[in-house]
Computed example of a mutant assay.
Amino acid sequence: MGLLERLNDDMKQAMKNKEKEKLSVIRMLKAALQNEAIKLGKSQLSEDEELTVLSRELKQRKDSLQEFENAGRSDLVEKTKAEIQIVELYMPKQLTEEELTQIVKETIAEVGATSKADMGKVMGAIMPKVKGKADGSLVNKLVQQHLSS
């Protein structure tokens, strides 16, 4: 089952169960996917493109969460946390820190990186491998740790 079909099924279920928050987030995700398809001039997105859209939506919410926490807006913090949980339902299983560390070590060896100057090379090689399965800031932190040691 494709992501759009899954969203449609979940949207119907959310309507039946009168889950307003979930319904709202699903509609936002569907709109984001459809907008991306229109932007790319396609009738249907590839799995990779869908993952890019979901990752972007999740990142936006996490950034918003940080801003709301800094501003002391507890009402918006709770709402955004709930939205993040719903978006994460549609994301692939996230890699553990151990799995991510292993990928970082392998990639550093692959590209022959030796110092922090090679950071861009390493990040460029890692991100396609972990797309949607790991947070970019965590990947960045792990790469920095392994390049500085």
Rank of each mutant, 00 (worst) to 15 (best):
Q94E: 13
T96G: 06
L51V: 02
I126K: 02
D75E: 04
E47F: 04
K133A: 09
D63C: 04
K16W: 11
K20M: 14
E97Y: 11
G132I: 04
S46R: 14
N140V: 03
A134L: 15
T114A: 01
K62D: 03
K121G: 00
E110K: 13
Q44A: 06
Q85D: 13
K129T: 03
E21V: 14
Q34D: 08
M15E: 15
S43H: 12
K105N: 08
P128H: 12
D9N: 10
T107Y: 06
T80C: 04
M15V: 12
A117R: 05
A14S: 15
G136W: 05
L23W: 04
A134K: 05
L100M: 12
T80Y: 08
K81M: 09
A71D: 06
E47I: 07
V104I: 14
K20F: 13
K116S: 05
I126D: 06
S74R: 11
G2P: 09
E69Q: 15
R73T: 03
G2H: 15
Q44E: 11
M119E: 09
V139G: 03
L3Y: 05
K133H: 12
T96R: 04
V25T: 13
I84V: 06
I38K: 12
K141T: 09
T107D: 02
E57D: 03
E83D: 14
S137R: 10
E110D: 13
D118L: 01
K121M: 11
L58K: 07
A113K: 01
L51I: 11
T101H: 06
V122W: 00
D10Y: 14
L51W: 09
S137G: 09
K62P: 01
M28T: 07
F68H: 11
K121E: 07
V122R: 00
D10G: 10
E47D: 10
L65P: 04
L40S: 12
E21D: 14
A31H: 12
E78Y: 15
L138Y: 10
L33I: 15
E88C: 11
V104P: 01
Q60D: 12
E69S: 14
E67Y: 04
L23H: 10
L54R: 00
G136N: 08
A14P: 12
L58Q: 02
K81G: 03
K12C: 04
D9E: 14
K79H: 13
G136Q: 11
L45A: 03
L95K: 05
Q34Y: 08
K79F: 15
H146M: 02
I126L: 15
A31M: 15
N140Q: 02
E49I: 11
E106T: 06
S46Q: 09
L54I: 08
M11N: 13
T107R: 06
L40R: 14
K59G: 02
E69W: 03
A71Y: 12
S64F: 11
L40Q: 12
V130A: 05
L89M: 15
M28C: 08
V87L: 00
Q94H: 12
L29E: 04
E83L: 00
A31T: 09
L51T: 07
M123K: 03
G72R: 14
N140Y: 07
A71P: 03
D9S: 07
M11F: 08
K93W: 02
D10N: 13
M127H: 05
D9M: 15
N35H: 14
L65Y: 06
K22I: 08
A71E: 10
L40C: 07
V122M: 01
R73D: 14
D48F: 06
L45V: 08
K129P: 02
A82R: 09
K133V: 09
